Computed example of a mutant assay.
Amino acid sequence: MRFWARLIATVGGLGYLKPAPGTWASAAALPLAWALHVSGGFPLLALATLLAGASGYWAAGVMVGPDRIKDPPEIVIDEVAGQWLAIWAISLPAWLHGIEITVLWPGWVSAFVLFRLFDIWKPGPVGWADRSGGASGVMLDDLIAGLLAGLGTLLLAGVAHGFLMGG
């Protein structure tokens, strides 16, 4: 069981890349998100995100136990799940409107940069979740960071396309 938990938690060993394993995992999540979106649209990416979150929670629980506060850097399934959640901001509109998702490349950049910023900086609820400890803390801070990054990406898209500027 510990073998499978480590394999999932480190995303096949990706979490052992140095430096900044979380950034490596976030970067690796992007082409995987693209492949999921191209293969099955937003529903497949959403399902994969939910599966990554659930399996990540289980794997993190095995790896850190219920009482450990620190989020080990090699656990990066949380970054993958959070990054995919941020990508929902471009996957859903692309799927709903039949837009090729690569055309939305500024959204990819925004989702990546904002996710990494929120994950590292840990503002407000991201920091609270990170301090909560155990598997919940490991997973929840990145999911909240992904949600904030997705909302930020939507906000930036609205500004860029004039929806939020009265244009």
Rank of each mutant, 00 (worst) to 15 (best):
V126Q: 06
A149H: 01
R2N: 11
S55T: 07
L7R: 03
A9D: 03
P21C: 14
A149I: 08
V113M: 15
L17P: 04
A9P: 02
V62Y: 07
A157I: 06
G162R: 08
V126T: 13
F112H: 01
A54K: 12
L147R: 00
E100S: 10
W128G: 15
P106M: 05
G98L: 07
A129V: 14
M63T: 05
K122E: 08
A94Y: 06
G107L: 07
G124F: 14
W24L: 14
V113D: 07
I87E: 12
G107C: 11
P66S: 05
V64Q: 14
T153V: 09
L50C: 13
A59V: 05
I87F: 05
L148M: 04
L47Q: 07
A46I: 01
R6W: 04
G150W: 01
F115E: 03
R131D: 13
S136N: 06
S91N: 03
A20V: 14
S132I: 09
L114F: 13
I90S: 06
I90A: 07
P123T: 07
G56K: 04
L156T: 02
E79N: 01
L47C: 14
M165P: 02
G61L: 10
K18W: 13
A27P: 06
D141W: 05
V11A: 10
T10I: 03
E79M: 08
P73A: 15
L148T: 00
A33D: 03
